[in-house]
C-alpha cells in the first residue's frame, strides 16, 4: 500500500467519523463539529494529493486548503451564532426541536 493510499484512507475514515457525528448526535453544536471534521478530511486529501501529485511546485493544494480553512472558520462562526440564536428562542440546542418551518 502506498503512502498516498494510506493518507486517503485516513481522510475517508475521518470523513466517516464526522458523518457519524453529524447524523447520530442531536446536539446542534456536535453536528456542527461533525461537519467541521468532514471539511478537515477534505483538506487532508488536498494536502495528500499535493504531496504525491505530479506538480507539487504549483502549490494548488496548499492554496486550496488555506481558502478552505478560511471558509470553515466563517462557517463555524455563523453556525455557532445560529445555535446561540436558536437557543435563545427555544431554550434548547436539540436539532429536532427547531422544526417550526416544517410543512
Amino acid at each position: 500500500m502506498s503512502p498516498l493510499q494510506l493518507c486517503l484512507i485516513l481522510s475517508s475514515l475521518l470523513f466517516c467519523v464526522g458523518l457519524v457525528g453529524a447524523l447520530a448526535r442531536s446536539n446542534t453544536i456536535l453536528v456542527l463539529l461533525g461537519i467541521e471534521l468532514m471539511l478537515n478530511a477534505a483538506n487532508l486529501n488536498f494536502i495528500a494529493f499535493w504531496r504525491y501529485g505530479p506538480h507539487p511546485a504549483a502549490g494548488t493544494g496548499v492554496i486550496f486548503v488555506l481558502f478552505t480553512i478560511a471558509v470553515a472558520a466563517a462557517e463555524a462562526a455563523v453556525g455557532i451564532a445560529l445555535v446561540i440564536a436558536v437557543h435563545r428562542h427555544r431554550k434548547s440546542v436539540r436539532l429536532q426541536e427547531a422544526a417550526s418551518l416544517k410543512g
Partner: peptide, 25 residues
C-alpha cells in the same frame, strides 16, 4: 442508521481508493 450510512460511504470510498490506479511514488 447513522453508523450504517457512514459505513456504506466508507465502503464505497475504500473500494474506490483500492481500485484506482494510484502510482505509489
Amino acid at each position: 442508521l447513522g453508523l450504517m450510512v457512514a459505513g456504506g460511504v466508507m465502503g464505497v470510498m475504500f473500494g474506490a481508493i483500492m481500485g484506482s490506479p494510484l502510482d505509489g511514488r
